[in-house]
Simulated assay, not measured.
Amino acid sequence: MIIGKLQFIEYSATKSTVTGRDYRVKCAGQRTVKTKDWLLQELQNYRKQHKSM
């Protein structure tokens, strides 16, 4: 059972359960990165922006 955001990123949103290959994301004007790295960075950015709320 997945309980939190970090577990979701770690176990569900990072790589294929069939091939074991990492998922990757490419944003306009940026290099392709592992989905795990991108999601963790975006979560960190979100938490910084909403820290005072």
Rank of each mutant, 00 (worst) to 15 (best):
T35P: 11
T35N: 09
T32Q: 06
F8N: 13
Y46L: 01
I9H: 10
T32Y: 01
Q49S: 05
Y23S: 10
L6T: 06
Q41L: 05
K5T: 11
L6Q: 08
K51S: 15
L43V: 05
K15C: 11
S12P: 13
M53Q: 11
Y23H: 14
S52R: 05
K36S: 11
V18Y: 09
T17Q: 11
K36E: 00
Y23Q: 07
Y23A: 15
K26Y: 00
G20W: 07
K51L: 14
K5E: 00
I9V: 14
K36I: 02
L40A: 07
Q7A: 03
V25S: 09
I2P: 13
R31Y: 06
M1C: 08
C27V: 00
D37H: 03
S16W: 00
E42V: 15
D37Y: 03
Q7K: 01
I2E: 09
M1Q: 14
T35F: 00
Y46R: 14
G29D: 05
Q44N: 07
D37A: 09
S16C: 14
Q44L: 01
V33E: 01
M1E: 10
M53I: 08
K48R: 14
A28K: 08
K5C: 02
G29K: 01
I9E: 03
K36V: 02
Q7N: 10
T35D: 13
R21W: 13
L6H: 15
E42I: 11
T14W: 02
G4E: 12
D22R: 04
R24G: 01
L43W: 06
L40K: 02
L39S: 14
S16T: 04
Y46A: 03
W38P: 02
T32P: 01
A28M: 02
D22L: 07
T14R: 01
T32K: 13
T32W: 06
Y46H: 04
E10N: 03
G20H: 15
C27D: 06
R24F: 10
H50V: 11
K26N: 08
L40G: 00
Y11P: 03
T32G: 00
I9R: 14
I9T: 06
V25K: 06
S52A: 13
L6C: 12
R47M: 06
L6K: 09
Q7V: 06
L43I: 01
G29R: 04
T19G: 11
Q30F: 10
M53K: 14
V33H: 04
S16R: 04
H50M: 15
I9K: 04
